[in-house]
Design a protein around this nucleic acid. Sequence first.
DNA 1: TCCATATTTCGATGAACATCGTATTATCTA
DNA 2: TAGATAATACGATGTTCATCGAAATATGGA
Lengths: 230, 230
Amino acid sequence: MSIHPNITALTALLTEKSRATILAALMDGKFHTASELAYMASIKPQTASFHLSKLEENSLVICEKHGRFRYFRLANEEVANTLEVFMSISSPPEIRSLKQSSQLKRLENARTCYDHLAGRISVKLTTIMLDNGYIEKSNKQFIVTVKGEEFFNNLGVDIVGLSKKRRSFSHACLDWSERTHHLGGALGNGLFVRYIELGWIEARANSREIIITDKGKIGFKEYFGLEISI
Amino acid sequence: MSIHPNITALTALLTEKSRATILAALMDGKFHTASELAYMASIKPQTASFHLSKLEENSLVICEKHGRFRYFRLANEEVANTLEVFMSISSPPEIRSLKQSSQLKRLENARTCYDHLAGRISVKLTTIMLDNGYIEKSNKQFIVTVKGEEFFNNLGVDIVGLSKKRRSFSHACLDWSERTHHLGGALGNGLFVRYIELGWIEARANSREIIITDKGKIGFKEYFGLEISI
DNA sequence: TCCATATTTCGATGAACATCGTATTATCTA
DNA sequence: TAGATAATACGATGTTCATCGAAATATGGA
């Protein structure tokens, strides 16, 4: 058993500082233009273009052309998950400032993972949904039970609509700060979008950090029975 | 959240083909001489020496000197676990030959992870031990219950002796083919050694593959209630 | 003491590759 | 149609780094 060529190809791409910065920027799951990414990585547009074409060749990102602009995004959830692994493999903390430390704590608590919720709260919510019998774990997927259908509809999440999407409906996504699974896939995204609609959570502009609003504290308590202390 | 410098340092080390080969060779948890590793990686001793000193600097391997020889080993279980991640991140299968395919299956079924058992059988055994109340999961550790103490003693594993070792007693080790935890640490190793003593499993010379003997099939059935089909 | 073996040190070489300047293509706007 | 902006293409440059030859160091055995 050796390290798979595909993986070394991936790590080679990741090891380069500029590319790592670009990929980290794309971890929000949104589209970004080439220039924007060049600016973020502090390199000239040509260089960014060079890197982006490499990333595209290796199916790490996809590109959509709109007029003069090229919008880049992570290719899929699988890529985001893999990057999440690399970003969070446990390593000596090496916290410099208090600010950094508290930001890390907030990220561990609640953050986005591609297009759904991750971190402690996401793992807790997933556990609650399992315990209450709304979902069941089957291999690497979660299955929505009859009881669950009622719960999600009550919450305002359109299960039927979501299940029609081509992407995996509700796969178990490994959470790297918590080292267990949380809910990903279309259902994970559906819930995430709904939490925002309900004003339970708020996303920060240039960060993967998620803030739980006062409204959210009440909502999560009412619907999930989850007490949020901080 | 960006990719941690420590991680890029690690991936940089891993990306290089010769070093990856050396590390893969060391995944058996045993000591190997510098020349031996040079030969395995098809490079001259000087080059291997160069790589090994880099790996040592980065605390991935440790070195013990005996006479003219320098014996290298992975620094610790943590390193082995991290490597295990890289080796098994799911990637397009790309199986070339039947031989390769069946070897992969055997590895998924039973292999060593550093110095304990991993793969499907290890996960199954861990689940059984949990279900029977021999161990309990607490965070990233497994705790041996009173019932468990009796079970392990009955099996011939010296719990008291093992718990005196300085290494972590029984941590939950992420299994990358199964995507769940199995039992690692001193207890994981203790069981592994005991299975070999009992003749239940056999390790192959230059592979991480583990073979379950006929004696083992009977033993695992008797003590764990585990049916091994193949 | 002398030679063989294991390993490291040093220096040279060559290949891989990120970066950017210049130029080109594509698209939008006035 | 002309100028501005977004992005890519190409070529030159410089740096990093794996590799190996040559030589040095350390140890074991005869």
